[in-house]
Every structure is written in C-alpha cells, then in structure tokens.
C-alpha cells in the first residue's frame, strides 16, 4: 500500500536518537519527496546536533529523486553538527545505493538499534 494520506514518516526516539521510519513502500517523485522533506528537515532544524536514523524497512521502491533528497538531508544534518545513519534497507534498494556509490556516502546498518548506537 502507498497511502498518500498517511504521514510519510513515523518519528520515534531511542534515548536522544531520533528514528525517522519511512512509512511508504514507494518513494517516487515530487509529492512524495516534498512530503518527506517537509517532515524531516524541520526535525533537523529543531535540534542543534541531531542524531538521526532513517529507517527504510518499509521502502520497496525509490527513484533517483529520493537519493537527491537524502543528500540534501545529509548536508543539513552536517551543517547543524549532527550525525546521520540509514538502516534496514531492502536488498533491491541497497543495490541502487551500491550502483550510485552512495553506499560509500552514507553509514548504512542492518537495523535501527545498530544505527542508533553508531550516530
């Protein structure tokens, strides 16, 4: 399901680590990207040095536009002196990161717990 009316991100906390779990199976173009941007960027802005984990466990499909958004998020996190990790990326999605070599840009962990410990 790709319910566009539901929030695109579920935010939980593990101590002082913010875990943003992407809730939609597919991240396609403008509307999906804008919804994510409008949810995640304020989280970063609200914190001086956020420790942020983005959980991809639900995501089954994304396009290069989503990769661009992740770069923007990563830049914002760095500007605010924070740290970012990604986790629970399905193999097909991980392959997209590998092809684009963004697996070398992002810290990627098998699950949220390990990611939270690293940031």
């Amino acid at each position: 399901m790709n319910d566009k009316k539901s929030p695109p991100v579920a935010v939980t906390y593990d101590g002082d680590v913010t875990i943003a779990t992407l809730t939609r199976e597919r991240i396609l173009e403008d509307a999906d990207i804008r919804a994510l941007e409008e949810t995640i960027l304020p989280l970063i802005a609200q914190s001086d040095s956020i420790r942020l984990v983005i959980d991809f466990s639900t995501v089954r499909f994304l396009t290069s536009a989503a990769l661009g958004l992740l770069i923007r998020i990563s830049k914002k996190v760095r500007e605010q002196g924070g740290r970012l990790a990604l986790c629970s990326i399905q193999p097909k999605i991980y392959e997209v990161f590998r092809i684009t070599q963004l697996d070398q840009v992002f810290q990627i962990f098998p699950d949220a717990e390990q990611a939270a410990r690293s940031v």
Binding site: S64, K75, V105
Partner: peptide, 9 residues
Amino acid sequence: NLYKYGGRG
C-alpha cells in the same frame, strides 16, 4: 559529483 543532488537517472 557524489554529493550532488541530481544526475543519477
């Protein structure tokens, strides 16, 4: 180019 927002399509 690795940190550029686009150009991967």
